[in-house]
Structures are given as C-alpha cells and as structure tokens.
Amino acid sequence: MFKFFRKIRQRLLSENKFRKYLVYAVGEIILVVIGILIALYINTSREELQQQQYTLSIFEQIRKDLVNDSFKLGIDIKKIETTNRYIIDILANKIPDSFYTAINETTYDDADVRPLRSLCTDFVAFLPNTKGYDLLTALNNKELVNDSLTNSIMNYYTQLKTVLPEYNKVTVELSKRNIQDYKQYAWFENWALGIYDPRFIEYLQNDEENRKRLAEFYNYNSVNESYWKTLKQSTEKLIEQIDGQSKRP
C-alpha cells in the first residue's frame, strides 16, 4: 500500500500538479491519523475489556470468600448458641442432679456432655477470608473502581476490620483467664487432657465460683451471638448483591 501511495506522489510531482499533490498529501496525513486513532481505540477497548474481566474475577473471589465465611459463621453461631443454652440452664438450675451423676468415664465424651467441659474456656474467634478484598484494594490503589457494589464491599470489610477484632479479643482474653484460674484445682491436669475426673463434675454442679465465671462469660458471649448473627445476615446480603450485579447485561 505504501508503494502505491509513493507512486501517486511521484506521478503528481513529475506532472507539476503541486496543488493536487498538496491536497493528496493532506488526505494521506488524515488517513494516517485516522488509522492511528482506530488503533488507539482498539487497544484501549482491549485494555478496558481485560480490566473488566479482571474486576469480575475479583468479585468472584470475594463471593467465594463470603460463601465460605457464611458457612463458618453458621457453625460458630450454633456453637455459641449451645454454650449459652447450657450456661442458662446451669444458672437457672434446670439441669437435674441425675444428669451429673450419670456422667462417668464412658459418658464423659457424649455429645450432650462434651459442651459442659469448656463452657467458659472455649472461645469462638472469627477470622474472615480477605483474598478477594485484598485484590480489590490493590486494584483501587491503581484505578479507582467506584460503583455501588464496590462501595458496599469496601464498607463491609472496613467495618469488619474495625469491630470484629474487639469481639474476638474480649472472649479470647476471658477464656485464657478462666483457664489460668482452673490451674488452682486438683482436677486441672485431667481436665486439660480431656480425662474424666469426678472432682471436675462436682465443681460444675456445685461450685459458686464456677457460676460466677459462667455468668460473666455468658454476659459477653450473648453479645457475640447477636453480633455473629447480624454479621451472617450482612454477609449473605452482600453475596446477593454480587449475584445481582453479575446478572446485569
């Protein structure tokens, strides 16, 4: 093609048709500029498409993280509910003496006995998956993604990073303190090893210090239960928002 244009230029010059040559030269420049603009447009469109696909892949990762977190929260909530229910029953003297006397080396590991062994020492500390969020944050540092979905995701994880550590911290520290207090009792080693010890059952049933520990632990754990349930609802709502965004044309 360049050879073709060169021949036209040479013919016009040889025929001394300067005006036509000038018009032709301007036209050739315009064609070159148009070609460059088209190439830039195609390249820009390709980059924008790649950027959109990468952003969508980040949203998919965030959704996967949220689904896993929601599942984990469901397990944690059931665990907290079980602990709180046992504590309430103990404090309200709803557990009959026959239940305690039936506990022995064989039944100590039964499903309905096992929660009693760690009512105020077994904490739930939720640690969310943040792989997708970290990718989105890195993307926003380069090119700001500003839409309702991105803002919802940012707000969700910002609140999570602000509030969640405090909930984790309180129950973890309280559980550690209770374990330290357990060291004063003769049954501590057996308790730590998960070995049945009738002295520990007696402690659970009658010791006033145990009731105080349980009441204190319930005070914080009931707040945790409420927060964990609210967090699960927020997580599922954000998953629905991501799903709704992905269905848009």
Rank of each mutant, 00 (worst) to 15 (best):
Y227Q: 08
W228C: 05
L238T: 06
V223F: 14
K161V: 04
R85F: 09
K78M: 10
R177T: 07
Q53T: 12
N16P: 07
Y185V: 02
L119N: 00
D69P: 09
I29H: 01
N219S: 14
N16W: 08
S246Y: 06
Q51T: 10
E47H: 07
Y108I: 07
E236I: 06
L149R: 05
K17I: 09
E48A: 09
G244N: 15
Q233E: 15
S234H: 10
L49H: 08
D207T: 07
G132L: 05
E240Q: 13
V26G: 06
E208D: 14
D147T: 03
N129P: 00
Y100V: 01
S118L: 12
I77L: 08
W191Q: 04
I77F: 03
I87S: 02
K131D: 14
K78T: 12
P96E: 07
K72F: 12
Y220M: 03
D65E: 08
F18P: 00
T106W: 00
W228A: 11
Y41E: 07
S14V: 14
K183Q: 13
T130V: 13
E143I: 14
D110V: 06
Y21A: 06
A92R: 09
Y100Q: 03
A25G: 05
E225Y: 09
Q61V: 10
T150P: 05
F71Y: 15
P96G: 05
F126K: 01
K232C: 07
F217K: 04
F200N: 04
T235M: 02
L135Y: 10
Y133I: 11
N68S: 15
I38Y: 03
E173W: 02
P198N: 03
I179D: 08
Q180M: 13
Q53W: 05
I87C: 06
V26F: 10
D181L: 11
Q50M: 11
T235Q: 03
Y218G: 00
G244C: 02
S175W: 01
N140I: 02
T106V: 13
D76Y: 00
K237F: 11
M154P: 04
K64C: 08
L193M: 15
V172Y: 09
Q233P: 03
K247F: 05
Y218K: 00
S118C: 14
F18A: 12
R11Y: 07
I30N: 01
G74L: 05
I75D: 15
F18I: 13
D134E: 14
G244T: 04
L127H: 11
D207W: 09
S226K: 14
Q52K: 13
Q51K: 10
V124E: 11
L116A: 03
I195K: 11
E105F: 03
K64W: 12
Q61N: 08
K161Y: 09
K7A: 12
E28L: 00
T106H: 06
I8F: 04
F4T: 11
F18M: 09
N141M: 15
D110N: 15
R213T: 01
Q10F: 09
V223N: 15
L144F: 15
V163Y: 10
R6K: 14
S222Q: 10
Q184C: 02
D243Q: 11
I87H: 04
D65P: 06
G244H: 05
D97S: 13
F99A: 07
L22I: 11
Y156M: 07
